[in-house]
Design a protein around this nucleic acid. Structure first.
Lengths: 253, 253
DNA sequence: CTGTGACCTTGATCGAGGTCAAGTAATGAC
DNA sequence: GTCATTACTTGACCTCGATCAAGGTCACAG
C-alpha cells in the first residue's frame, strides 16, 4: 500500500496557497524543499482511514504530525452534554498536529476516505530546530489558520443562518475552484463534502436549519441542487452577496 | 515620557504563562533573553493611548509589531452593516501584529489607557530570521492563540447566553488571579475591564442580553456585584459549573 | 422485492435571545 | 443648581432558529 500511496505524491507538488479554506495553509511539503527532503523522507510514513473513522480523539497522545494527502478530515470539540462544534476543516495539504504538544486538543475525524502523510514528532521537532525554514513556514501556516479561525468567529457570533450557509458554500466553491484551476469557468459546480449534520456542527446550527436554508437558497435561485450534494453556482457574485461579507471579494476568509 | 515608561519595564519580567485568556501567550520579552536584548533595544519604542482610542484600523498599514505593557486592548472585526465581533482580548504582555503581513487584519482598540512596546517590523523580522529562538516562541504563542480562538468558536457556536457570560467571567477571574498571584484566596474579586457592549461583542450577544444574564447570575448568587463593574465570586466551582465546560477544571480555555 | 438504515426534508410549535423603548445612575460641564 | 452624556437596567414584544415529530429517498443486504 505504501507503494500505491507514494505514487500519489505528485499531489504534494501542488501546494496551493489557498486563501479560501476556513483553515488556510501552505503544506509542509518535503518534495518542494530539496534540502530537507531526505531528512523528512526518513521519518515519514503514510496512514489511511475509511470515511467516518476517527483519526485521533481529543486528549489522546499523539506522537506524530501529519499532512493531508487526499480526502477530507474535520477538527472538532464536544461538550460533556454532546453539543459539538467543528473548529477546522482539513483538506489536502493541510497540516495536522502541533509541535510542542503531546496530546491532541481536538477530535480529528475522516469525513471521506483519507490518506495522511505522517512525520514522527520527536524527529520532526529536532529537524525543525535545525532547520529554521520549516519553523517559519509553520508559523506562517499557523498565522493563516488563526486568521481563518477569527473569521469563523465572526461567522459564528454574528451571521444569520442564511449567511452562514452562503459563506460555507462560497468557501467550499473557492477551494474547489482553486484546486481544480478552472479559473475562467463562470459556472462553478462541485459536490458538498459534508453531511448536513457536519455542516451544522461547523456553522453552529442544527441540521434541520441547514437543510431549510439550503432549500431556501435553492428556491431563490442562488444555488442549483442535483440530488442532495451536487451544487451548481450560477452567479458567484450573487452568492457572495448572501454571505454578509464585504463585497469587494478581495479577502473573504 | 519614554523615561517614565521605562520605569514600568519590570512588568516585562513577569511573563505569566496564562492559560486562561481567550488569547493566551507568552511575551516576547527583551529582558528575559539576554542574547537578543540589545538588538531588540535598538528597534523598540513605546506608545501610549487613552481609553477608547483606536490603535490601528483593519486594513491600515502597520509597520510595527508590539507587546502590551499595561492596559487592555481588543481585537475586532466589523461587517459592512455594523455588526461587530471581537476576536481577541489583549492583556499585558500579549502580542500585537504579525510578521510577514503589512496590513492590519483587525481593529485594535484600547479599552483602558494602554501602553504598548513597539518593535519596527522590518528589523524585527530580520532579527527573527537570525534568531530562530524568537520565531519559535512566536510559533508557540501563535499556537496558543489558535487554541484559544478555537475554544472561543465552541463558545460562540454552542453555548447559551448564560454559559457565555459565566465563561467570560471565569476567564477574567483566572487571568486576574494569575496576575495577582493570590492563589490561596478562595474568594476572587476584581473589576470587569469591559463595558457591557464590549462583552456583547466578545460573546456574540447584545448588550441587553449581557445585562440580563449578569443580573440573573447575581440574583442566583453565582456572582456578587458592587456597582456595575466590581465582581466578587464567592464560589469559583459554582461559577465553573455554569460555563458548560468540563468540570475537571484542568483545561478551561 | 422488501426490509433496513443513513441521510435528508418538511411541518408544527416553542423559547432564547434580539429589538425597541423607557427609565435609572453616575459623572462632569456650565 | 440644570443639562447632557455615558453606561447600564428593565420591560414588552417579536423573530429566528431550536426542538419535536413525521415522512421521503436512496443504497444496499438478504
Amino acid at each position: 500500500m505504501t507503494t500505491a500511496v507514494k505514487h500519489s505524491l505528485p499531489d504534494h507538488h501542488h501546494v496551493p496557497d489557498c486563501r479560501d479554506c476556513p483553515i488556510r495553509h501552505r503544506a509542509v511539503c518535503a518534495r518542494c524543499e530539496a534540502d530537507e527532503l531526505e531528512q523528512l523522507e526518513e521519518i515519514k510514513y503514510y496512514r489511511s482511514y475509511p470515511a467516518g473513522q476517527t483519526v485521533v480523539w481529543a486528549g489522546d497522545r499523539m506522537d506524530f504530525v501529519a499532512s493531508v494527502v487526499s480526502g477530507i478530515a474535520t477538527l472538532s470539540q464536544t461538550m460533556e452534554d454532546g453539543r459539538t462544534q467543528m473548529v477546522g476543516l482539513l483538506l489536502p495539504s493541510d497540516f495536522i498536529g502541533r509541535p510542542g504538544r503531546d496530546d491532541a486538543a481536538y477530535d480529528v475525524v475522516a469525513t471521506t476516505d483519507l490518506i495522511i502523510c505522517c512525520f514522527r514528532k520527536r524527529p520532526f521537532e529536532s529537524l525543525m530546530a535545525r532547520t529554521p525554514h520549516i519553523g517559519q513556514r509553520l508559523l506562517e501556516m499557523t498565522l493563516d489558520e488563526l486568521d481563518a479561525a477569527r473569521e469563523w468567529m465572526l461567522l459564528l457570533g454574528r451571521k444569520t443562518a442564511r449567511e452562514k450557509i452562503a459563506s460555507l458554500i462560497a468557501i467550499i466553491a473557492r477551494r474547489d475552484a482553486s484546486l481544480n484551476l478552472k479559473a475562467n469557468d463562470k459556472i462553478m459546480a462541485f459536490d458538498l463534502p459534508l453531511t448536513r449534520e457536519a455542516m451544522a456542527d461547523y456553522l453552529g446550527l442544527t441540521l434541520e436549519t441547514v437543510s431549510r436554508q439550503i432549500t431556501a437558497l435553492r428556491k431563490d435561485g442562488v444555488i442549483l441542487l442535483e440530488g442532495k450534494r451536487h451544487v451548481t453556482i450560477p452567479d458567484f457574485e450573487r452568492l457572495l452577496g448572501e454571505t454578509g461579507d464585504d463585497s469587494d471579494g478581495g479577502y473573504l476568509i
